[in-house]
Design a protein around this nucleic acid. Sequence first.
DNA 1: AGCATAATTGTAACTAGTTACATATCTCAT
DNA 2: ATGAGATATGTAACTAGTTACAATTATGCT
Lengths: 359, 359
Amino acid sequence: MHIRSFAKISGVSIATVSRAFNPNGAIKAETRERILRLAAKHGFTPNIHAQRMSSRTSSVLGIFYSFSAEPIFDYYNMELAQQLAFEASKAGFTAQLELSSAEDQQQHLRQLVQNRALGGIVLVAEGEESAKALLSGIESCPSVVISTTPWSNSPTMGLVHLNVAPGIDLALGHLLQGKHTRIGYIRGKADETKLAAYQNFMRSKGLIVDPAWISAPCSTFAEGGAMAVELARKGLSAILCATDILALGALHDLTASGLNVPRDISIVGIDDLAFSSYITPSLSSIGVPRQQLSQSAVEILMRVIRDDREGRSRPQYVHTVNATFTPRGSTQVLTPKGKKISPQKDSLSLLHKKPNKNG
Amino acid sequence: MHIRSFAKISGVSIATVSRAFNPNGAIKAETRERILRLAAKHGFTPNIHAQRMSSRTSSVLGIFYSFSAEPIFDYYNMELAQQLAFEASKAGFTAQLELSSAEDQQQHLRQLVQNRALGGIVLVAEGEESAKALLSGIESCPSVVISTTPWSNSPTMGLVHLNVAPGIDLALGHLLQGKHTRIGYIRGKADETKLAAYQNFMRSKGLIVDPAWISAPCSTFAEGGAMAVELARKGLSAILCATDILALGALHDLTASGLNVPRDISIVGIDDLAFSSYITPSLSSIGVPRQQLSQSAVEILMRVIRDDREGRSRPQYVHTVNATFTPRGSTQVLTPKGKKISPQKDSLSLLHKKPNKNG
DNA sequence: AGCATAATTGTAACTAGTTACATATCTCAT
DNA sequence: ATGAGATATGTAACTAGTTACAATTATGCT
């Protein structure tokens, strides 16, 4: 059933049918109701492809990760994408996670835009340059960038700035209050902002920032674990990890190597994934509010789209979302006594203590 | 740039251009090459919407979860969707996770199919009836069902049967070998097959299947935890959980209430999520091979699509994927000594012991 | 009632491709 | 050289909508 035959059935012109289905079509309310009722009766729904072709718009929201060198098999990105999809669907859009490899990403994006396959783009980016490079030449398509760096010069498109620094400050402040001073950092991929926030905080408090306390960039559980064990050997009392994944790896390998978290060493993650509060010890984590992020991104995108459609020029929408911090079981205040104990030995004995009690 | 102007530029007809872009268009190899080269030079790519409209096909793979009453904020489904998307993209399809609420799901699906928005459907289903109901009337669209139940009568569409029973047998066998006999089960939503497999195994070995050892269906960390504590009170020595999420909740709450996993009670999950081997204790889990599942599903779907296009009737493709079991740290062999302890009393006293210790 | 203006509806020309059928070109055996 | 059969290309009719503009109908005001 297409529009022409349905128009004939309902005794109006195809234009009227089209208007009935378009929320801002100039049509009498009664007529619209009658047509929609008839459409439901006869099972007519406008064909999406045809709609998109002739209206030259699309209500598909493309989600891109500018640093998706590897497939995004990563809980944080998955959770974020899911949130974005959810927010998008509330705005009548259907989200599409684009997972082309890093090399063809630019081309892939260009092609989608040129095809007008996308009504809007949400680009989750770390670096400003890479994001701009990726979006250059496709300004015709409304886009929002979710970025951990603030934009240096005013953005040409919507920007949601995810400010991790406050969260990192809170977390490190928490550690400092707990008398931790030797704090290391396990780097993630493309985490310059996080690194800078860590370094800034440390310096501002007059703490040591030994390059040896900062790991190479890594991403998997296993890498996180290996780095954590290595840093622990250097006598650190706390480690900040660029992601909860790395933190979980750290927790695992540290425990496996006989250390007790948080007694011997405190661990802080970034992302605050859903499961982070449910593991043992529960993970103190810097919360990156995925919901707020997604909401703002979609909201801004919708505004840009509306502006475009109504011929207005695009104002520069910017919104900042601050990270928070939730202390949990993986960080501990060092007691004067606790500070003195030799972590290695003690933890080893502890590991086998409990059985005696219950056995 | 559309096909007509580009055809003019390259000095051929629009039909020839179209053929150059269609893999099975009857066209001279040199001509195709020349046109594709020219297209690259002039930046011409066929418009997807127009293609889909006139060819009345789509290369979008819709992923549906038949039991998505709540938003699918669930690691297993996310990991599976991701895998599906990955496999789909290898086959030239772009996957789209459809997350309408349960009530409008049927209508949503129908509309998409009627619009020919979808080239294929992957439906992740638990119940056979619900899956059939959802797909009835839209046989025109190729579909594959990933189901934990085998199809009772021959399927009208592709079927990937995820057989959890072997995994459950292995896991329960492992527990039994470890002298566990009092084994409870924390139910998930729509997990009849899992429940049946559990009951069958228990009965086949002459073990007690006390209805009181089987929880109400639940899905969140918190519910899993609460159920686990409740079951632990009944003196069980092991609990099988319908998902790793539930198992993680169980691990958390049991530990919080002073029990030690695996010494006091063993826990087995189902799904074998990426993080399950990295938590402490590492989670023994029944592995559901997401990759195999996705691969088979997409492969079958592509075959159905090819059959359709070439006018063949659809053979009944069925593929079975068996679950496996990986024992890890959350399950333990009971020693004769361990077996003697009166679980009931001991665990109850334990439940309120911890505060004193640390307070 | 008569006219200006506004609100609806209709007509027809778009959107950008695919594909059945017709036509042209090529290959090769006679 | 010629015609059959195969291969390649072109023409034109589709696909199913939107929308500018024209035409019609309704409303308000004198």
